[in-house]
Nucleic acid binder design. Structure first.
Lengths: 243, 243
DNA sequence: CAGTGGTCTAGACCACCGA
DNA sequence: CGGTGGTCTAGACCACTGA
């Protein structure tokens, strides 16, 4: 039972503030001296806390301007959770179209993955079907489930089509910030509606991506299954950093 | 034309030392005060340089013991560049078997990806074919190309079968440390020899992973195409960090 | 110009490790 | 016990930003 380092403590308190909405995405945080005073620590201890949050892409610092709460919609983040690129490595801006949206009882697997209670009546989730287009070509179809509790009114408003990432909309409209994802990839045969939407023959190989997306405190908030036609596109993974 | 921060300068000099073999993988580095004195900087500037190398998984620090040069073969790294896991997320230790090894002229695409000259006679590479087995089941087949210049004598010795990662052997036997990879994933139909080795029917969907692996200074040293049968296994990608 | 974050230092105390 | 890295502080100077 060892005591948490002071800077970790401060980091946690800042995260609590972010969860509580003390500062909202896009906001400027108070200056270093002010924050240091507020948490009763030296400025360099505060800086250690901020540095970890910057490394985690949750905060953003700009010399001469201040420390900001990251926006998913900002230029440097728009691709960070979107991995489909052209086979030659070039990134293209995706377009999204909602094919369907309904409110249903969560099946057991969905409830477990989202850590919702398996009540008798069933926890409810919104299920969406999304088509993703790159350069005018339909490339992927996603089935998405999110808890209704976190997205009140979604059944009425839905999500407009466009190229802003869904995660940007989660954040902007519902205050839900995705900070981590876990993808499991496999290859499957195209079937039924997917084959039709993607304009491929039944039985053609598709890339299937099953994702769980998390917000603060490792809380899962979305599960999504994407099937992508990888004729001219690929799923890109970069691992490690150059030195 | 702005001057590089001192700690970046120190970091670069340490990396140069690693490339030059001044310290080898597994070695203990000199203590902080000694390194600080050696580079003529304050101890906290040195620490900033070391911290970035630790973050990049190149160095490893243990309180009370010292700072070490990372080994690919060490427990925490054995999985870091291996992404195939059971569909339920459990990691299993892979086994490797070499199916073939030959020395050939690099085709243009290979030469370009490895940044080798397209000489008239052609740069030479070793081409290997590897089978990867998980829990006794053949799950993937990899075709690998590496420049002969970096792996002298490989055609005689080859790589013994086993479960140590190839990257561990690159490092141990040839002093080549892989620090970054770039994978492009797609879905393809099983064909010919691959279908046979993986014991699947022709036309079954396979996950195809095309990888370029880099060492220091963004130098590419290996290209590899893996085809995996994702019946019971998946390619796992974690993105972002929990807070 | 004043205010911000970025870099750099000196020095203290602590926790961990192995002899 | 002495040596290691881990944490924490105070304080200085610099570079960038916007008014």
């Amino acid at each position: 039972m060892t005591r948490l380092p002071l800077y970790k403590e401060v980091k946690n308190r800042i995260v609590e503030g972010l969860i509580a909405g003390e500062w909202r995405p896009g906001d400027v945080m108070p200056s270093e001296p002010r924050l240091a005073k507020h948490y009763g620590v030296g400025i360099n201890t505060l800086r250690a806390a901020l540095s970890e949050l910057v490394a985690a892409n949750i905060l953003l610092r700009r010399q001469g301007k201040g420390t900001f709460v990251s926006l998913h919609a900002s230029a440097q983040n728009i691709y960070s959770f979107f991995n489909l690129v052209r086979a030659d490595g070039i990134r293209e801006l995706p377009a999204r179209r909602m094919l369907s949206l309904r409110k249903v009882a969560a099946d057991n697997r969905t409830a477990d993955l989202l850590q919702l209670p398996r009540t008798r009546t069933g926890s409810t989730v919104f299920r969406m079907k999304i088509q993703i287009t790159l350069s005018g070509t339909p490339v992927a179809v996603s089935e998405i489930a999110v808890p209704t509790a976190l997205f009140p009114g979604l059944e009425r408003r839905g999500f407009e089509d466009g190229s802003v990432s869904l995660y940007g909309l989660y954040q902007e409209s519902y205050g839900v910030t995705i900070i981590r994802t876990r993808d499991m990839l496999g290859a499957v045969k195209a079937q039924g509606a997917d084959a039709q939407v993607l304009a491929v023959r039944t039985g053609e190989p598709l890339l299937e991506i099953t994702r769980v997306a998390y917000t603060f405190n490792a809380r899962p908030v979305e599960i999504r299954t994407t099937r992508a036609h990888t004729g001219n596109y690929r799923y890109l993974v970069e691992h490690g950093s150059s030195v």
